[in-house]
Amino acid sequence: MLSIKNLHVSIEDKAILKGLNLEIAAGEVHAVMGPNGSGKSTLSHVLAGREGYEITDGEVLFNGEDLLSLEPEQRARLGIFLGMQYPVELPGVNNMTFMRESLNAVRRGRGEAELDAVAFMKRVREKAKLVELDDRLLKRSVNAGFSGGEKKRNEILQMAMLEPQLAILDETDSGLDIDALRVISGGVNALRSPDRSIILITHYQRLLDYIQPDFVHVLVDGRIVRSGDKQLALELEKKGYGWIEEEAAA
């Protein structure tokens, strides 16, 4: 489904990703771990098409299509969802209106009919239960004045609504207490399916206790220096990133 080959990315002439390779097949859950500044968030932003990154080499194919030449909304309509580390606030923009516009834009992109108001409402309420999101938050402005946990629930709710093929969850666990982490993980797990792939970007092993990954990759200094299964994450938890950085440098 997703194929990243030799990806090099710079920000203002500073190289961040230095030849990253990653293959993800349908239905797989990949965890990408790494120390601060290793390029995890850059990877998620580049996949979603955020401006300000210069692709100096390499390619990214999504279902065989060149992803890097597409606008962010085109990627979204192809089924790429980025759950953000810091979801953005949109003052005055009603959360429901926003989700409805978003869902219908994506549905149009998929060649599906738009949902009418009744069907939309029904679906939102159903999905909101999944992440235990308070109904009142649906009526407020998007993320405006939401707590950290509420913002992350709102992200997963949007993921549930949009039914992406590839969900990239960027530090979805950051800033969550244990209950919120459980709820959000439950939401993500419920969305696992054979035709949906997930990239979990995280700092800590903790999240992986709740969402079991098929593969774990360690990103150091812009490259994946080691890949393995869940065991690798546990090893990192015990030994920290130091040993692997040394190995990578050697």
Binding site: E71, P87, F98
Partner: peptide, 23 residues
């Protein structure tokens, strides 16, 4: 970027944000 990541065109995103601004 947030709006476009959710599939909205740039123009719709702007219109939505500006309408929110005037709400």
């Amino acid at each position: 970027f947030y709006c476009r990541q959710r599939g909205l065109s740039e123009e719709d995103a702007v219109s939505m944000i500006v309408n929110g601004f005037c709400k």
